[in-house]
Nucleic acid binder design. Structure first.
Lengths: 153, 153
DNA sequence: ATCGTTTACTTGCTTTGTTAAGTAAATCAC
DNA sequence: GTGATTTACTTAACAAAGCAAGTAAACGAT
């Protein structure tokens, strides 16, 4: 006799817990980004590109947690704003390689300090040790499953 | 002399790490929900309501991580689908109280088993202990800051 | 009682997310 | 090397997210 499955408390539902945690963490970052007129998604694109160097769009989308159609549109806008550039891949005509421009890099560096301050505050309130532990667990969770991860903002 | 602040590795950026982790965790749940035609957001609304009982929209929005405008529109649809009901608050004419209907409850129970299986699988792959630890940390992070948390999906 | 403020939504508009096609350049099978 | 597949996007169309205003009901102070 199976008894009816019960749903977990929402606090103990990993998807919901992750979402709520993200809202808490993003709150001050949204304030920061709002002041500069750049969206969360563009911010992620710039960070990923700066970290990984030039990337083709599929890889960029995956690392920035965006779907390709969203990325296509965003890159068009970002190209016009002079934040990124796109060049055809010399070896493969289907691909195009996205790079950050100096202007894009500048947007990041303009916010690096504020960003660091926000993180430092979080670290101070939550505890460095617990924060590192949390990041370790999240990293472990993501590991190996990069294959089919799709997106959302 | 302050040296220029450096941005963290994206794997070590809490907002990005949370987002990536969520993508991994949501993947099988999306499959489940897609089959039944209910959206992630509606799923969250139903779960929160079932857990907390009737709620006014502001509280519901906060707990389900939705912005009020999104919730307003979603509730209109969910009301037509017979998943929830809305009643004006007798004591305060500005508020309306949202309740789950029997049909709404049924949608949840119809998926409870599949949902439990998905969680069990995750638990098996990631480890029960680490999973509980992760949930503890996320819960701790969210605690106390419920004030200004706003939303996104 | 009246004016200003706060609270609780609702509406309108733009940007993203999502799904499904569509296109063009590789790659594979033979 | 020709046809079928696969890969890497792009386009289109529609729902949902997010921000800014707008409305209406409480509340607070005078």
């Amino acid at each position: 006799m199976d008894q009816p499955a019960r749903l977990r408390r929402t606090d103990r539902s990993l998807p919901i817990a992750l979402l709520r945690a993200r809202e808490v963490v993003m709150a001050p970052i949204r304030v920061m980004l709002a002041e500069s007129g750049i969206s969360e998604q563009k911010w992620r694109v710039l960070r990923v590109l700066t970290e990984s160097g030039p990337l083709e769009q599929t890889a960029l989308a995956e690392r920035a947690c965006l779907l390709l159609p969203s990325l296509t549109r965003m890159l068009r806008a970002m190209e016009q704003e002079g934040l990124v550039g796109r060049a055809p891949d010399p070896g493969d005509g289907r691909k195009s390689i996205v790079t950050v421009t100096a202007r894009g890099r500048r947007v990041l560096s303009d916010h690096a300090e504020a960003s660091a301050a926000i993180f430092a505050d979080l670290e101070a309130r939550f505890g460095e040790e617990r924060l590192e532990e949390l990041l370790d667990l999240l990293e472990a969770l993501t590991e190996g499953e990069d294959s089919k991860a799709q997106s959302r903002t």
